[in-house]
Amino acid sequence: MPLPTMKEQFAALIAAPSVSCTQPALDQSNRAVIDLLATWLGDLGFACDIQQVTPGKFNLLASFGSGPGGLVLAGHSDTVPFDESLWKTDPLKLTEVDGRWVGLGSCDMKGFFALVIEAIKPMLDKPFKQPLLILATCDEESSMAGARALAEAGRPLGRAAIIGEPTGLKPIRLHKGVMMERIHILGRSGHSSDPSLGHSALEAMHDVITELKGLRQQWQLEYRNPQFSVPHPTMNFGCIHGGDNPNRICGQCSLEFDLRPLPGMDPHMLRAAIMQKLQPLAELHQVKIDYAPLFPEAPPFEQDADAELVRVAERLTGHQAQAVAFGTEAAYLQRLGCETLVLGPGDIACAHQPGEHLEMSRLEPTVLLLRQLVEYYCLTPATVR
Rank of each mutant, 00 (worst) to 15 (best):
320 Q>G: 13
303 Q>A: 05
301 F>V: 05
324 V>N: 00
335 R>I: 08
336 L>R: 10
345 P>I: 10
324 V>D: 00
302 E>P: 07
312 V>C: 06
300 P>N: 12
342 V>C: 01
332 Y>S: 15
329 E>P: 12
317 T>S: 13
320 Q>V: 13
309 L>F: 07
310 V>W: 11
326 F>N: 02
313 A>P: 00
302 E>Y: 14
310 V>P: 12
323 A>C: 07
335 R>D: 08
330 A>P: 06
334 Q>Y: 01
332 Y>A: 14
311 R>F: 09
312 V>A: 04
302 E>A: 12
335 R>G: 07
320 Q>R: 11
305 A>S: 07
344 G>Y: 15
314 E>T: 09
335 R>E: 13
322 Q>C: 04
309 L>Y: 06
307 A>H: 09
327 G>P: 05
331 A>N: 12
314 E>A: 08
329 E>F: 09
336 L>N: 08
325 A>T: 13
331 A>Q: 08
309 L>A: 12
341 L>D: 10
322 Q>Y: 03
345 P>L: 15
310 V>R: 11
327 G>K: 06
339 E>C: 03
342 V>W: 00
326 F>P: 01
329 E>N: 09
338 C>H: 02
317 T>K: 07
302 E>F: 11
312 V>Q: 03
339 E>F: 01
327 G>F: 05
319 H>G: 08
306 D>L: 13
319 H>L: 11
307 A>N: 05
336 L>M: 15
330 A>Q: 12
339 E>S: 03
330 A>R: 05
319 H>E: 15
323 A>T: 07
